[in-house]
Design a protein around this nucleic acid. Structure first.
Lengths: 247, 247
DNA sequence: GGCAAACACGAGTAGTCGCTCGCGTTTCTC
DNA sequence: GAGAAACGCGAGCGACTACTCGTGTTTGCC
């Protein structure tokens, strides 16, 4: 027990059970003293079902306002069944967050990998932003869990780590373009670009169809105009005026 | 009773009591059948005290996670005393929101009034944004109540109205500059500028001292670069490159 | 087939929250 | 000074929450 948390009885059990629920890589170091049986396929299906239900409920009500009973009801099972697979409410959010986070890391990893090749800024924004926007539109629960202010500590931690990782990535790209700029200012620019993206994403996710497309374009325009003066006046980058009129 | 809400018993009483708590303009149409006595100075002081406490607690915990008992404790009174002045928890947030909203309207009214004179864009941004930023820094509860996702219906309503009003204002300014641009696109630009401001404000409010100053500058830079291509290439507006290096 | 463990249920438990109520104190009005 | 109303208290109520437990069913393994 690395940390000494006094009174929370659930937390310890939560971690191992949630890890087990993940079912993935950490498979088994089968303790011979207790040769436990394997989770059945039915159980995995229930977990997926509960996680889908939780994503729905979290999206419509937020984390704190979502009751475990409501999640169970949405999944069509009893509260007892829910607690067969998750030790507590937080573990549900953590497991859901972890799974989404894994897929998110793949998404943005691929997006940023492309940007290494020296594309003009507008093409680079397309290459980077489009997959990230698509992911968030397909997984609205990700946005809720990552940017909600009412989220349990464990997810907040994971989000902070992720945020720092992505920020570092953006900072190093910026530092490539701007070797003379002091680090704190690069940090601020990266942070601001990030916040602007999130703000625009909010607008994108709140709209649909053609309007959504228009907001995506508008978000790219903001990012383009913000970053264009920073990445130099290469001929590879069109002048900002090209983006003024009808997109 | 203009609306017919069926089962919420508290709502009706809430409105009149909260209005009375406001104590302000709607003073009295003294029903002769029930010549009620006036609120004492002590009571007004308690209300202010409770509202200050509520602002504190809402800021640190958010609305839903703040218990009325916690607010009463923070104010140093008993729960019963709290309910002497507010019919329910929502009414506390509504009253607090209303008072902040009044002051906010003054603030942004004054800010936008100045902008009517045709300043260069960077000066106009200073004139408009500085007071708005200052207000939010001095009243963090305003940000929490207006942009929180877990807020009761009555405040959300008020916020939506405010949002629409400010948006219209921004749209009309933009329409002055861009008479040829279709209305839906002007709407999107205004909405995006608004969201960018909110995002930057988040960053500003999370920092302090010199860092805050730097983020304020960075926020203005984003807004400037976003809007500059839109307001024409007047000599009154400096080229965007002027803002690249050390601010 | 039989046994043990995973799965499933849902009424029930402890705790918290918004809010009330009875009663005592202070202040205003006459 | 007397009556009324505003003010103040805090134990406690009902509703709701996260979570449990005893019991019964399904499944995998020998």
């Amino acid at each position: 027990m690395p940390e000494a948390k006094a009174n929370k009885t659930a937390t310890e059990a939560a971690v191992e059970a949630a890890t087990e629920a993940a079912g993935g890589a950490a498979d088994e170091a089968p303790d011979p003293t207790r040769p436990r049986r394997r989770r059945q396929a039915r159980g995995e299906a229930r977990i997926a079902q509960l996680l889908r239900a939780a994503a729905d409920v979290f999206c419509t009500s937020g984390y704190t306002a979502s009751s475990t009973n409501a999640i169970a009801r949405e999944a069509g099972v009893s509260p007892g069944t829910l607690y067969q697979f998750f030790p507590n409410k937080e573990a549900i959010a953590v497991e859901l967050g972890d799974r989404l986070l894994d897929r998110w890391r793949d998404t943005y990893g691929a997006a940023f990998a492309q940007s290494h090749t020296e594309l003009p800024l507008d093409r680079m924004l397309d290459a980077v932003l489009d997959p990230l926007i698509a992911f968030n539109c397909e997984n609205p629960a990700f946005f809720v869990l990552m940017h909600g202010s009412e989220i349990p500590g464990q997810i907040t931690e994971a989000h902070d780590t992720l945020h720092a990782t992505m920020l570092t990535r953006v900072e190093s790209v910026l530092a490539d373009y701007l070797p003379d700029m002091p680090a704190p200012q690069i940090h601020r620019i990266a942070e601001m670009a990030f916040m602007v993206f999130k703000a625009g994403l909010d607008l994108v996710m709140a709209s649909e169809g053609e309007e959504r497309t228009a907001y995506i374009q508008e978000l790219k325009t903001v990012m383009f105009r913000y970053l264009h003066p920073l990445v130099g006046d290469d001929a590879s980058c069109p002048a900002p005026t090209e983006r003024i009129d009808t997109p």
